[in-house]
Simulated scan of single mutants.
Amino acid sequence: MWMRATCLLEFNNLVATPFIFMLRPRSGWQQWIGREQYLLTPSVSAIEFTDPFGNLCQRLMAPAGPFTVNTSFDVDVAEASDSAPGAQFVEVQRLPEETLPFLLPSRFCESDRCTQLAASIVAGCSPGYDQCSAIVDYIRRTIAYTPGSGQQIISACEVNERSEAVCRDLAHLGIACCRALSIPARMVVGYLENLQPMDLHAWFEAFVGGRWYTFDPTQDDGRGGRIAVAYGRDAADVAIYTQFGDPVELLNMNVTVERIAAPAC
């Protein structure tokens, strides 16, 4: 199916400020970008580069005063996330090299401190996909998904001590537990159809059965189209914008996601 996603960011810069944005999705086996629009107001020159995880990043100097970024994308995606109960664990020595960084502890996913927790959660599960599903079920049972409840980024171990959290933090806990079991796991930031309230969203993917699968502790099923924008080890790698220097005021952020008709041939 085809989806249209938009994101509007409005800033007020006290002084000229360097930014790095991560707002452009890229085509891949899970999605195809049919149309995109990326407007900067006032218009400034931008340099695009690809980070170590393959994300498209835009580097620019925003002038003092009001500054707006307005993006829009038409993307062909699946109507639901794939699932594969029983998909097998891939032994570390057989993993593709590009998955290896997602086995290691990272700033917000301290998997080396989650070994006992992960083992207790997956006791009796077949290694691989079923373990990931058990981790997601545990997160849903023990921590309430509460949008807007956490402005400060917290680590997986801190999340596990709380009764509520945002999507980003729940993904951190899932990632840390998967890595503690030697399952590569990575954070994804993007758009999700029918998300309430509508915003940019975070979930995680785990590498089992020879490919990446989507896991989302905030959703009861895999329905709803997803547009992935950025991948990384944790939230530190996938910020939609990074600003340097004096703090900048974000005046407004507005996200929309809707189904659209397929483009005419």
Rank of each mutant, 00 (worst) to 15 (best):
L117E: 15
A118M: 10
A119N: 09
A119R: 14
I121W: 02
A123G: 12
G124P: 04
G124V: 13
P127T: 12
P127A: 15
P127W: 10
P127Q: 11
G128P: 01
D130F: 00
D130T: 08
D130W: 00
Q131R: 12
I135H: 04
I135E: 04
V136R: 02
D137K: 09
D137P: 05
Y138S: 14
Y138M: 10
I139M: 06
R141Q: 11
T142L: 08
T142N: 11
A144P: 05
Y145L: 07
Y145I: 09
Q152H: 13
Q152T: 08
I153E: 14
I154W: 07
A156W: 03
A156H: 02
A156F: 02
A156L: 11
V159M: 04
N160W: 11
S163C: 08
E164A: 15
V166W: 00
C167Y: 03
C167L: 06
C167E: 07
L170E: 09
A171I: 06
H172V: 10
H172M: 07
L173I: 09
G174A: 07
P184L: 08
P184S: 14
A185H: 03
R186L: 04
V188L: 09
G190H: 02
G190A: 07
Y191W: 12
Y191F: 10
E193A: 06
E193Q: 14
L195S: 03
L195F: 03
P197K: 09
P197M: 14
P197L: 14
M198D: 13
D199T: 10
D199R: 13
H201Q: 07
W203C: 00
E205T: 00
A206D: 00
A206L: 02
A206Q: 00
A206R: 00
F207I: 01
G209D: 08
G209W: 03
G209M: 04
G210Y: 09
G210V: 09
W212D: 00
Y213F: 12
P217V: 06
P217M: 07
Q219I: 15
D221C: 09
D221W: 12
G222A: 13
G225Q: 03
V229Y: 02
V229I: 11
V229M: 08
Y231A: 06
Y231P: 13
G232Y: 00
G232F: 01
G232I: 05
R233F: 11
R233H: 08
D234P: 02
D234H: 03
A235W: 05
D237F: 00
D237G: 05
I240Y: 13
T242F: 09
F244C: 15
G245D: 11
D246K: 09
V248L: 04
V248Q: 01
V248I: 07
E249I: 13
L250D: 02
L251M: 10
L251W: 03
N252T: 04
N252H: 10
N254C: 06
N254G: 12
V255H: 05
V255N: 04
V255W: 03
V255S: 02
T256P: 13
T256W: 05
T256R: 11
T256H: 07
E258S: 10
R259D: 07
I260F: 07
A261E: 08
A262E: 15
